[in-house]
Amino acid sequence: MEKIIYTDIAVIGAGPTGIVAAYNLARLGYKVSLFEKEESLGGNILKTYKLFPNFQSSNELLQLFGEMIVVNNLSLQTGVTVTNIRKDNNHWISTTNKGETIVSKAVLMATGFKPFDAHYKEEYGYGIYNGVITSLEFEKMLKCGEIYGSNGITPEKIAILNCVGSRDAKVGNNYCSRVCCINAVKFGIEIKEILPKAEVYCFYMDLRMTGQFYEELYRKSQQEYGVNYIRGKISEASQTADNRIQLKAEDTLLRLPIKMTVDLLILMIGIEASESTKELSAQTGIMGEYGFAKSHSLLKADNHTIHPGLFIAGTCKRPFTYPETVADARAAVVEIQHYLENKT
């Protein structure tokens, strides 16, 4: 039997953006239905260990999210995918894969990002060599408290490579993913804290320390932790006879090609529009470049879309850091409130 839910706002995606927006809308007295396709809430935060720049534990945040969603007026459904959204007169109709129909006055898309698939950068041999892992796999190692290299033993030398899947026409992504540079700095420090004797080399094209305390953290990683930074993009990774990883790059400041053997290569994978973001944007005609959802006006109405009542927030629009995505969620709350009170 078909189930119909009537609500003020349907929020799609219970990552940081969706949770913060839903929580604040509910506190304003609106009826909010929050949908998450995964079984647990938290989105991509679930895959991380600690967050830059102050090393806050992701678990603490997840705990906070858990507390936020018990607010009045907010109903959360996990394991439910919103497959279709469309406008019907003054209402929005969303349908889910569980056969539910949600009738709402407004919809907030907070469908987030997906990590870049490192297989596409074939030259790094991801999926072929054990010693080549992604930043998310490294987060998993940090969560378990154990770092191991290609031979399963404690690594002596680790390379971190920035811009994997970002700023790269070869994979169709010309944009910067914004979070990887500072995350690489964070990794450098985390490695040195667990393995003080390990040598850490961070390869970069530009280091973009755009947030508060990022530059300071970068400096600290050099001064206090001795993390090495080499300006140059790794061009090739291959496996040596003793199962380590051989890298080729140019030290562009030295102007010489270099070769280096490491026990672990961490690929800082970029941010791409998630499948839900792409699908729902395509359905509603709001898909912008690279599959991200496009706002009505970057400078004037960045949470609006071309459709009144359909709002977007967070990394479904473009790469954001955690503080940025949460700020964007709060901004969306104000815009939605204005819309529902006919103030726009």
Binding site: H119, E122, K170, G172
Partner: peptide, 8 residues
Amino acid sequence: MERKFWKN
């Protein structure tokens, strides 16, 4: 943009 992935 076209994605260049030759492996398959």
